[in-house]
Design a protein around this nucleic acid. Sequence first.
DNA 1: GTCTATACGCCGATAGAC
DNA 2: GTCTATCGGCGTATAGAC
Lengths: 201, 201
Amino acid sequence: MIEVPTRERLITEAMRLFCEQGYRATSVAQIEAAAGLAPGSGALYHHFKSKEALLDAGIDRQLDRRQSMRDIRMLFRGVGDLRTDLTLLGRYLTAVIDEEQQFLTIAANGPGSQSPRLTTAYAALLHGLHADLAELTGNWGPNIPADEVEAISVVGINALLGNRVSILLGAHKQSISDDRFLSEWTKMLSCRIEKATTPDS
Amino acid sequence: MIEVPTRERLITEAMRLFCEQGYRATSVAQIEAAAGLAPGSGALYHHFKSKEALLDAGIDRQLDRRQSMRDIRMLFRGVGDLRTDLTLLGRYLTAVIDEEQQFLTIAANGPGSQSPRLTTAYAALLHGLHADLAELTGNWGPNIPADEVEAISVVGINALLGNRVSILLGAHKQSISDDRFLSEWTKMLSCRIEKATTPDS
DNA sequence: GTCTATACGCCGATAGAC
DNA sequence: GTCTATCGGCGTATAGAC
């Protein structure tokens, strides 16, 4: 039986609540209550200087997790045909976006410009996703121009991102299952890459 | 010289501020100041019962605009080849999402579950976009199974949505121009639809 | 319809006992 | 480290003069 430190519990519950209700809408008392402390007591301030410092700590923890996921992903690169590679990468990218969903929700309308840390972290996230898909596209379509590779990867990443966002906004009805979505995503991209490799037959 | 009624100015400025800073972060005083009234005075409450009633009024106005755009779009259906139709629809869908961007930002982390009106309006928006693309896909690929048509349209819509969202979140760097994006989006979808029409040659 | 003034509540943060 | 108690500030909403 391991005791989770209060500081960690505060970060976990805070990020969950920020994600659900937004940064401003979540009060310090609520976070304390969720972490098992007396709501309204300033107990939180013995671990963090301010509410925003707590958010920064949450961002840093998320950044570490992302790096871990990226390390693991390197083990599964380039083993198989185009569709298999695309499917594996698609699963990885979806998992990353899911893991960072808290980010996205908070960044969408959190402190916004008040917290440059958020926009920086988000830009780095998108850049990484984009680079991964662009690398795969370039490997399987060696004679595709660089700017076309870029366009393909942007559309591909944004499709995944949009799918997650639409779910996030409560569009459960018209969305399809993850498996079907990823299957179609793979089909569409492989179709495009294959056709670009053989321009006219 | 037409005098814009105070009520309309209040709605316009409120939606703009909600979009920039979020619903909760925007104070009534700020809205009053933006509309040319004395900040802090309750002048706003002579036009709206509460701050949330103001948001509802903004939502209703947006719904009317959407209906207008939809009426216009009906004039441009099904004239040309697959790519032309896709490009026209893509421009229309992008325009709709842009017009509703205020929605998206507010819905992403506004009152959330507090305001069922927002989620309803957003679900209706996505449903309309999805139906448009599904209809086009079905028309140009008559022998594609219905569930495949659905998957294609979901991926297509989410790509557009994700593109707008990523811009919205401040990812100006890795994003490409609208023209290049729409061009690639058209290529990818037409490629997919054409291939599905002729399964194996 | 718009103003000044104000009531009331909630939240972030601090002080000090234990 | 956690508690009780509290200060100061901001935000919504109202009352009443003009």
